[in-house]
Lab assay of single mutants.
Amino acid sequence: LQLFIKTLTGKTFTVEMEPSDTIENLKAKIQDKEGIPPDQQRLIFAGKQLEDGRTLSDYNIQKESTLHLVL
């Protein structure tokens, strides 16, 4: 599923993930694309901070959802 990642600077980029992927996987993918170390990434969806060990489906993140990346 394609997700939109929006940064505080207003930049938006996309990543391609599976619902079974963990937040950790997502942070690694963001590191590949943007060079931001996972330990500096905080991801927010629907007002909640996402925890590394959980999956996208745990948070009911669907295709074309927008996640906010806070550094």
Rank of each mutant, 00 (worst) to 15 (best):
E18T: 10
K27P: 00
F45K: 02
I30E: 00
F4L: 13
L56Y: 01
K27I: 02
I61R: 02
K33Q: 07
Q31C: 05
D52W: 03
S57F: 13
T9F: 11
L56Q: 00
N25C: 05
P38W: 15
A46I: 06
A46G: 11
H68G: 05
K6E: 11
S65I: 05
T7N: 06
K29F: 11
P19M: 13
T9S: 15
E16P: 06
G35I: 02
L26K: 00
L1F: 07
E18Q: 10
I30S: 00
Q49G: 06
I36V: 14
P38H: 11
K63S: 15
E18L: 12
G47P: 01
E16R: 15
P19V: 07
D58I: 03
H68C: 05
E24M: 12
Q31T: 13
D58W: 15
Q40F: 11
T66M: 15
N25L: 10
N25Q: 08
P37K: 07
G53W: 09
Q49R: 13
Q40C: 04
L69C: 02
L67S: 02
Q2C: 05
I30A: 01
L8E: 12
K63Q: 09
D39P: 08
Y59R: 01
K27Q: 02
T55Q: 11
T9E: 10
F4E: 09
K11M: 10
V15K: 00
N25R: 13
Q41E: 01
P19D: 11
E16L: 14
Q2Y: 11
Q2S: 12
L69V: 05
G47T: 05
D21L: 05
E34Y: 08
T7Q: 09
I23Q: 01
I5R: 00
K33M: 14
R54N: 11
D21W: 04
S57W: 11
Q41G: 03
L56K: 00
V70K: 14
E18K: 10
E64K: 07
L8S: 14
G47L: 03
H68Q: 14
F45L: 06
D52A: 07
L1G: 06
L3T: 01
I5F: 03
D58R: 02
T12V: 10
S57G: 12
P37N: 09
E18I: 13
F45R: 03
F4C: 04
N25I: 12
I61A: 02
K27G: 01
K11E: 12
K48T: 08
M17I: 11
T14K: 11
L43A: 01
K11H: 10
T66G: 03
Q62L: 06
T66P: 03
P37E: 08
E51I: 09
L71I: 12
E18M: 15
D39R: 14
D21K: 05
K48D: 06
P38N: 12
E34N: 07
K29W: 14
K6P: 01
I30D: 00
G53F: 09
G10Y: 04
I30Q: 00
G10L: 05
E34H: 15
L26V: 07
E51D: 15
L67I: 12
K29N: 05
Q40M: 15
F4D: 03
T66D: 04
R42I: 09
A46E: 08
Q62N: 15
A46V: 10
S57Q: 15
N60T: 04
L43V: 05
K27T: 02
D39N: 12
E16D: 10
I23V: 12
T22P: 06
S65T: 11
A28C: 04
Y59T: 02
L43P: 01
P19S: 12
S65E: 10
D39K: 07
K29L: 14
S57M: 15
D58Q: 09
Q41C: 04
T9R: 13
N60L: 06
T14L: 14
S20K: 07
A28K: 12
L8F: 10
T66A: 04
T12A: 10
E34M: 13
K11Y: 12
L3V: 10
I23K: 00
K33Y: 09
E18W: 11
F45Q: 03
E64S: 15
Q2N: 09
T7V: 08
E24I: 09
L71H: 08
I36M: 06
T7C: 04
E16G: 09
P19I: 09
K6L: 14
E34S: 08
K27S: 01
G47E: 07
I44S: 09
H68I: 14
L1H: 11
E24F: 15
F13H: 03
R42Q: 13
I23P: 02
L8V: 11
R42C: 05
G10M: 06
T22W: 06
K33N: 06
I44P: 00
V15F: 12
L71G: 07
K27A: 01
Q41P: 01
T14Q: 10
Q40Y: 10
D32I: 15
R42N: 08
T14W: 08
L3D: 00
I30T: 01
M17C: 04
T14E: 10
L1P: 04
T14F: 08
R42V: 13
I30L: 04
L67T: 02
D32W: 15
H68P: 02
D39H: 10
L3Q: 00
E64F: 13
S65K: 04
E64T: 08
P19H: 15
P38I: 09
K63N: 09
N60C: 04
M17N: 02
Q62P: 11
N60K: 13
K6T: 08
G47M: 04
I36D: 02
L71Q: 09
N25P: 01
T14R: 15
Q41M: 14
G53T: 09
K33H: 12
I61L: 06
A46P: 01
S65P: 03
S65D: 09
T9C: 05
D21Y: 03
R42W: 09
A28P: 01
L43K: 00
L26S: 00
L50T: 03
S57I: 07
K6I: 12
V15E: 01
G53P: 09
V70P: 01
T9M: 07
L50M: 11
D39I: 12
P38T: 15
Y59P: 00
G35V: 02
F4P: 02
A46H: 15
E34C: 05
S20G: 12
P38R: 13
G53C: 04
E64I: 05
T66V: 15
I23Y: 02
V15G: 00
L1W: 15
T9G: 12
Q2W: 12
S20T: 15
E34A: 13
K6G: 03
T55K: 08
V15C: 03
I30Y: 01
A46R: 11
K48I: 13
R54W: 15
S20P: 04
I23N: 01
L43G: 00
K63A: 11
D58P: 00
G10T: 03
L1N: 05
I30F: 01
T55E: 04
I61V: 07
T55G: 03
L67V: 11
S65H: 06
F4T: 11
G10I: 03
K11W: 10
D21S: 11
L56N: 01
E34L: 10
A28Y: 10
T7L: 11
S65M: 08
V15H: 02
Q62T: 15
T12H: 11
T66C: 04
I5D: 00
T14A: 08
L1C: 03
I44Q: 06
V70N: 06
E16S: 07
D39L: 08
P19E: 15
A28S: 15
L8N: 10
G53Y: 15
L8C: 05
D58M: 05
G35R: 06
G35N: 10
D52T: 15
V15T: 03
D21M: 11
L69Q: 01
K6W: 11
D32G: 07
